[in-house]
């Protein structure tokens, strides 16, 4: 009986973030009429999309008990690669997209390979990849922004479908895809198993290294999607783009209830986490709060979310 209550308490912790998000939205809608307008919501969705893609990727990684600090650099590498092939009247738009995705795939697979073969902690490996990736982006672009991109390519970040900005369409598709992978596939189940208890997963006959390879590769691909989106939105491939993005992505996952010790987390939680970050920076803009304060607020929210989560767990015991 005690256990059922504990479960309930933990669930409250899980819903807590939804509740907080709903309350904040309600408060904002009441305090500024500009917030709850269709155009503002579209702006938030577009702004959130890149961080959300990265956050989905890193959620997979964190669920398996790992971490990926190279997201921001993968964004830059993918961005530079995609821009290189996206000049007008050169290649069909599929080529720059594949070039960008290839960049993320290679770096992600590299992370996975080194982590599984060397047993060096993911923190260290991806810290290294973060620097390598940044260097590669500078090399590939010769240190200069790559501009003059085709209109078709710029549609990715700037176009709309039935009035919905294309980044939001991508965000929704990625969310569905990632949720399906996590909840409906064998790979997703194995991610929870590996993060929850790696030795037991191995003893159950699960190929742990293969699961990790997949996870870092998927994370690389999602980062690359973020990079392509960003490049298209700012219509330039910037070798310095994406710096610090990994921290926002990790923050979204953690606010959404993904435990840094692995084994728990949901895509819905991460999506809410990313939206919460987006909504708060948007509303602080609307309320004319300077960006310095925004950072303080954001940091407090991250800590607050984790404190709430751990309090829920403690009570549960």
């Amino acid at each position: 009986m005690e256990n059922r209550l504990a479960t309930k308490f933990r669930n409250v912790g899980q819903y807590g973030i939804f509740l907080a998000f709903a309350l904040i939205c309600l408060g904002l809608a009441l305090s500024t009429p500009k917030f709850f307008t269709l155009s503002n919501l579209m702006i938030i969705g577009t702004q959130v999309s890149i961080n959300a893609l990265l956050a989905f990727g890193v959620t997979f990684v964190i669920i398996t008990g790992g971490i990926d600090l190279s997201l921001g650099s993968m964004v830059a590498v993918a961005g530079v690669l995609t821009a290189t092939f996206a000049h007008p009247d050169t290649y069909p738009v599929i080529v720059p997209i594949f070039a960008g995705l290839a960049g993320g795939l290679i770096l992600g697979a590299f992370n996975g390979l080194v982590i599984t073969k060397s047993k060096v902690p993911p923190f260290i490996v991806t810290l290294g990849t973060m620097t390598i990736g940044r260097g590669l982006a500078l090399i590939l672009s010769k240190g200069r922004p790559i501009s003059n991109l085709s209109d078709t390519f710029n549609f990715i970040g700037g176009g709309t479908i039935f009035g919905i900005p294309f980044p939001i369409v991508i965000l929704i598709l990625a969310f569905i895809g990632c949720s399906v992978i996590l909840n409906k596939t064998i790979l997703g189940r194995y991610m929870y198993a590996v993060g929850g208890n790696e030795p037991a997963a191995r003893a159950s006959g699960i190929r742990v290294n293969r699961v990790k390879m997949w996870v870092y590769t998927i994370c690389g691909l999602l980062s690359a999607m973020g990079g392509i989106l960003l490049t298209s939105r700012i219509t330039t491939g910037q070798p310095n783009a994406g710096a610090g993005f990994e921290l926002d992505a990790i923050a979204a996952a953690i606010i959404g209830g993904t435990s840094t010790s692995g084994g728990t987390g949901t895509m819905t939680g991460t999506l809410i986490g990313a939206l919460l970050i987006g909504v708060i920076s948007n509303s602080l803009d609307l309320l004319n709060v300077t960006s310095y304060y925004q950072q303080v607020v954001m940091g407090a929210i991250i800590i607050g979310a984790v404190v709430l989560d751990s309090m829920g767990k403690e009570k549960g015991v």
């Binding site: 198993a193 929850g196 208890n197 037991a200 997963a201 699960i206 084994g263 728990t264």
Partner: peptide, 15 residues
């Protein structure tokens, strides 16, 4: 080595 604590009974037995 036996089970994954955060997974459900169902998910553990079929692992």
């Amino acid at each position: 080595l036996g089970f994954i604590p955060e997974l459900s009974v169902k998910q553990n037995v079929t692992l």
